[in-house]
């Protein structure tokens, strides 16, 4: 048995000397190492043996295998680059693509927006979604018995709290907690019992901004917002500032953005913080001033990506989400 192995080895050594090309080498490989090659035949024989003989024979076969593999490997380098019928390189074979995850377009938009404001020195803060009447309405100068309340339909909990209807609640919480100067950005979920359609949802996202110190002016508000829109939508972005009314700011402004054929689109509400709001949080409204703004994240994401229906955000169809790689 062992002699057969030695015999094959000697024969192989002889053949190795005659190899001239990649084809010869491949022939050699198939003859000895192929699936029906001589080595495989020896391997089969191992199984038929028992005891010491098996061990010894196995060792010999393994040595032969090692010798053959190394020889083929060594010669391979020599014929590299030669054309032939060998395993050819197919540059069109696809790579194996790993699973790539995606950020949700709402969060992608939030992160992009806050990045701009972070560069301007704004701090990102967070606040609760289940709120009190005080933080959501009273402190924001929205009286219970006033029609201005009508645009803030609200969900109430069994425990007599409410789901915040705007992220402005966060400015109240932070101002109660800290002294000026403040520069804040507060993104988050807000809730209004709206009938769901292509542009409304009972839950959506807002980003609140607040800048308060002793000298922040309306012209600063204009400058900061214009800079933001140019950073976010591009240098050519055209916006306009239109007077409006919000209970918690005065003067109040709505910002419209010029959007191709659609014309002017309302995109953000802002204004100088109303003195009543400062009074509510215990600031001296004669000594502090500043601006606040609030923008709808869904609306901006929809504009930016041409998303036709707000419901797409919450359905989480992977075919939709995967477009935001």
């Amino acid at each position: 048995m062992i002699s057969t192995v030695k015999e094959i080895e000697r024969e192989a050594q002889e053949k190795l000397g005659q190899i001239q090309s990649a084809e010869d080498l491949e022939g050699f490989r198939v003859l000895y190492l192929g699936r029906k090659g001589k080595l495989q035949a020896l391997m089969m024989q191992i199984k038929t043996l028992e005891g010491e003989g098996k061990k010894e024979f196995g060792r010999e076969v393994n040595q032969l295998k090692k010798f053959l593999e190394e020889s083929v490997q060594n010669l391979k380098g020599r014929f590299e680059g030669q054309s032939g019928e060998k395993e050819s390189f197919d540059e069109t074979l696809p790579g194996i693509i790993p699973s790539v995850g995606t950020l949700h377009p709402i969060n992608e938009t939030i992160l992009e927006i806050i990045k701009v404001f972070e560069k301007l020195g704004f701090e990102i803060v967070d606040g609760p979604e289940i709120e009190t009447e005080f933080h959501n309405f009273t402190a924001l100068n929205i009286p219970l018995d006033h029609p201005s309340r009508d645009s803030f339909d609200t969900f109430y909990t069994a425990g007599k709290q409410l789901l915040r209807s705007q992220t402005s609640t966060v400015q109240i919480r932070i101002m109660q907690d800290r002294k000026p100067p403040l520069r804040l950005i507060a993104p988050g979920r807000v809730y209004r019992p709206d009938t769901v359609d292509a542009s409304h949802s009972f839950m959506f996202h807002q980003i609140e901004g607040l800048m308060v110190d002793d000298k922040t002016t309306f012209s600063d508000l204009k400058g900061v917002l214009h800079l933001f829109f140019r950073e976010f939508f591009g240098k050519e972005t055209k916006i306009r500032f239109r007077p409006h009314f919000f209970p918690f700011t005065e003067p109040s402004v709505e910002v419209d953005i010029r959007w191709g054929k659609k014309g002017w689109l309302e995109i953000l509400g802002a204004g100088m913080v109303d003195p009543n709001v400062f009074d509510a949080v215990g600031y001296d409204s004669k000594k502090v001033q500043g601006f606040a703004f609030g923008l709808g994240v869904e609306r901006i994401a929809m504009l930016r990506h041409g998303i036709p229906d707000i419901r797409l955000f919450y359905e989480n169809d992977l075919r939709f989400l995967r477009q935001f790689r």
Partner: peptide
């Protein structure tokens, strides 16, 4: 409103540590 100038507030940097929860 369109006649009001646009200015960028120049301010001292605030304590700008990143919110660790975020």
């Amino acid at each position: 409103y369109d006649q009001i100038p646009e200015t960028l507030p120049a301010r001292e940097a605030l304590h700008a540590s990143e919110n660790p929860r975020l």
